[in-house]
Amino acid sequence: NITAAIYDEIQQEMKRAKVSQALFAKVAANKSQGWLCELLRWKENPSPENRTLWENLCTIRRFLNLPQHERDVIY
């Protein structure tokens, strides 16, 4: 289940792992930094009809659900 909290989790994970938006986007969703920036802007007004947005957030959720040491190896 995806909630608005995922946006904060993304920010916290980037700080914790000391990774850039570009690197996080690449490893978590195989996307660009610009894409992640755009995604983070949706926090203010996520559209329930935007299926692509929710699919991408689900992809990021799966990455964030990995154990921390696995995420660190991927970075």
Rank of each mutant, 00 (worst) to 15 (best):
A17D: 07
A4C: 09
A5E: 12
N56I: 08
A5I: 15
M14A: 07
W42T: 04
I10V: 14
P67K: 04
P46L: 08
Q12H: 04
D8W: 12
P67T: 02
I74N: 11
N56S: 04
E49S: 06
T59D: 06
N65R: 08
E70G: 02
A25Q: 08
N65I: 14
A4G: 14
R51N: 03
A29E: 01
A25C: 01
R71P: 00
V27Q: 09
V27I: 08
R41H: 01
V73Q: 06
W42H: 15
V73G: 15
V27M: 07
A5N: 11
Q11E: 08
N56Y: 13
G34E: 12
A17H: 07
K26W: 07
S20C: 01
A17C: 06
N56Q: 09
L53T: 07
G34K: 11
K31N: 07
Y75F: 03
K15V: 13
Y75Q: 01
D8Y: 10
E44H: 15
R51T: 11
Q68E: 04
C37I: 12
N56P: 13
K31W: 02
Q21W: 14
K43L: 10
E38R: 10
I60N: 00
N56A: 12
D72P: 00
R62L: 05
I10A: 05
F24C: 05
K18I: 15
I2T: 07
T59Y: 05
H69A: 14
Q11M: 14
A28H: 01
L57K: 00
P48W: 14
I2W: 03
C37Q: 13
R71G: 00
T59H: 05
L40H: 03
E44Q: 03
T52M: 11
Q21E: 09
F63A: 00
I6A: 04
E13Y: 00
G34P: 01
V27E: 14
V73D: 09
A22H: 02
Q33G: 11
N1I: 15
E9C: 07
K31L: 09
E38S: 06
I10E: 00
V73C: 13
I6P: 01
R61Q: 05
A4L: 14
I60V: 09
I6T: 05
K43A: 07
Q33W: 06
R62M: 06
K26V: 04
P67H: 03
W54H: 03
T3E: 11
R51F: 09
R51M: 13
I2Y: 01
L40C: 02
W35N: 10
S20Y: 05
E49V: 04
D8R: 13
I74Q: 04
N45L: 12
H69P: 04
K15Y: 10
I60P: 00
T3I: 01
V73E: 10
F63W: 09
T59S: 13
R62V: 07
W54P: 01
D72I: 10
T59P: 14
A5L: 15
W54R: 14
W42F: 15
K31S: 07
L40E: 06
H69G: 08
L66D: 06
T59W: 07
I60L: 13
S47W: 07
F24K: 00
S32F: 05
L23M: 14
L66Q: 14
N30R: 13
G34W: 14
K18M: 04
L39P: 01
F63K: 02
G34V: 08
E13D: 07
K26D: 11
A4Y: 15
S32V: 10
Q12E: 12
K26E: 08
A28L: 04
E38V: 07
H69W: 03
W54C: 05
Q11P: 09
G34C: 05
R62I: 06
Q12M: 06
K18F: 03
I6W: 01
I60M: 10
E55I: 08
W35E: 09
E70L: 05
K31C: 01
